[in-house]
Design a protein around this nucleic acid. Structure first.
Lengths: 321, 321
DNA sequence: ACTATCATTAACAACGTTGTTACCGCTGTA
DNA sequence: TACAGCGGTAACAACGTTGTTAATGATAGT
């Protein structure tokens, strides 16, 4: 692969001149510049970002670390973040692993966005990240941290879902999923705050996967005291729940209502278009990019960001039967 | 951020000694080594991969370039490739954009895997990639190229699907989707080769999205001469088709059979578990990694790879009604 | 003609590593 | 006593850039 020294030789100038020409400096004579540019083009010169970055310290590179790109919500975020960062003249590199944090840091990206779930991948993940001392933040946490983050008010989201179901006349509400304490607790709290009936049977633990949601509802012992509405912990569980409900002959929402967590557009294509709560994805993306920019350009000036609930009404919630 | 020179000062040795110690060289006295290691640990030393790579030329970094991570098939591949590369001691960086090729090359990754669809993003994408002269290949192409690639025998896959439907007694077979010439042509060819009835109505163009498949079938004019089975061009279309079919009151597979292209495991969770054709994803991943390894370690020795069809039987195909 | 000015280019240090070579002081051997 | 051998460490060049400073030659002002 050709480098500026090779080009310099070819053009009969010094390599520093080549560097300037390639960067469009006005310090080099137009004729020389175009000659250099021509040679660079001809030989397919590709600058070595490593060297550039090493000396200049800038790369316009941003890392996004997730631990599984197969969850559609991750994939969605990755795609939209990429687009938005591109608008801001940043390139996004995606790493699929908690170790991506160290990797991207070693690559000296200018900033790192970390998908909140990673916090749980390793008890001292936060410390690891904090010690790196690199501009970046956790996208999607439940609690206030000592490092920059975007807080999703999941508690408020769940409350919103409960409120919405109540407004539709529901009194017996179930919750499917168990992995995220905050959501489960928020659910419990909302139920008791709003003075609803409750039963431990209505809090149904499930793996955070399609199968998780599907199985528990497929096997659930329905009777006349069972919930008339469910809330699903995330998009996967919710889709599994919906399937199981339909398979068991319930009509949604005529017999049973369902609201899912995660505002994923494609949930409109579920068997029954799903009504969902969760932060607005657009807001997550735009807030992420501006927070990152602040972090990079004026470190120390990063304000905490909180994402409020958004509810998108589709067709999976109806009046209590 | 601390570097080896800082550590050297702290430890009272030369920076080259620090470098050796950090790399576990046996040329440095155990006592010195542990002292250095301790300091490095204490100050959270993180090597600068840029510098390392610049001088040593090695990074154990591999790039994967896609143009949209939201298609579940991409996401699946990205995830599995990541895992498999990790087993081979490579880190994978994902870039979501045709320009990712140049970007990753400028970062001097050791190899690049390019998702085949990108070929169509730009008429001279292949030339761009070829001129880079970096170890890498196109994953998933229809035709033999002059650059390394893994060829998916899509034609054979479609033939396989048709054969399978015939074996179940179907004579009138439809095809939904229009964007990939090769599949459409393969379908036409298979139909005529196997002496089946045909009608232009049975070849139903559709966007390569869920909505694409859904809409065309929702609006399709069914009558007694309509297909008794459909093939969907990809996983998204197929799911859309299935939904439309069910909504229109057809039973799948009792009334109409359906086979989808793309061997995506989660298609077992469709309303009717979908029977699919396509290359085996596991094979795609393992062949990708070994091809990449060959390309990196013994450039010039790369053999062309062809992926044969695999059919996974689930529940969306039954005997002709 | 003599210098100040300017445009253009060259030279060189730096960025943070690695790898090679050179050096130093010690031990053991002749 | 001289010196080969060796463990340990230091010195230094190199990787491909950028940015700063120095050098060069031409032009213009006096």
């Amino acid at each position: 692969m050709i480098n500026i020294k090779d080009i310099a030789k070819l053009a009969g100038v010094s390599y520093s001149t080549v560097s300037k020409a390639l960067n469009g400096s006005s310090l080099v004579k137009p004729a020389t510049k175009s000659k250099i540019l021509e040679i660079a083009e001809k030989y397919g010169y590709q600058k070595n970002l490593l060297a550039t970055q090493l000396v200049s310290g800038r790369s316009r590179l941003v890392g996004f670390v997730v631990d599984n790109v197969r969850n559609p919500i991750f994939a969605h975020m990755a795609n939209d973040l990429h687009l938005e960062l591109q608008n801001h003249d940043y390139h996004m590199l995606l790493a699929i692993s908690p170790d991506g944090v160290e990797l991207l840091n070693q690559l000296r990206v200018e900033g790192i966005i970390i998908w909140g779930d990673l916090i749980h991948s390793d008890p001292d993940f936060l410390k690891r990240f904090h010690d790196l001392n690199v501009p970046g933040f956790i996208l999607g946490t439940d609690e206030v941290l000592r490092i920059p983050h975007i807080l999703i008010d999941r508690k408020a989201c769940i409350h919103e879902a409960v409120r919405y179901l109540i407004a539709h006349g529901h009194r017996k509400i179930g919750f499917v999923g168990g992995s995220q304490e905050i959501k489960v607790n928020a659910f419990r709290e909302a139920i008791s705050e709003m003075g609803l009936e409750t039963s431990e049977d209505w809090l149904i633990p499930a793996d955070s996967t399609w199968e998780g949601g599907y199985r528990v509802i497929r096997d659930y012992a329905f009777h006349k005291e069972s919930p008339t509405a469910f809330i699903g912990l995330n998009n996967l569980i919710t889709k599994g729940v919906l399937r199981a409900l339909l398979e068991r002959g319930f009509s949604v929402p005529a017999d049973i209502s369902l609201v899912g967590y995660d505002n994923l557009p494609e949930l409109k294509n579920a068997e029954v278009p799903l009504t969902t709560v969760g932060p607005s994805l657009e807001e997550m993306v735009s807030k992420s990019v501006s927070l990152l920019q602040t972090l990079i350009e004026r470190p120390g000036n990063a304000l905490p960001v909180v994402l409020k609930p958004a509810l998108v009404e589709r067709a999976s919630v109806g009046p209590r039967r």
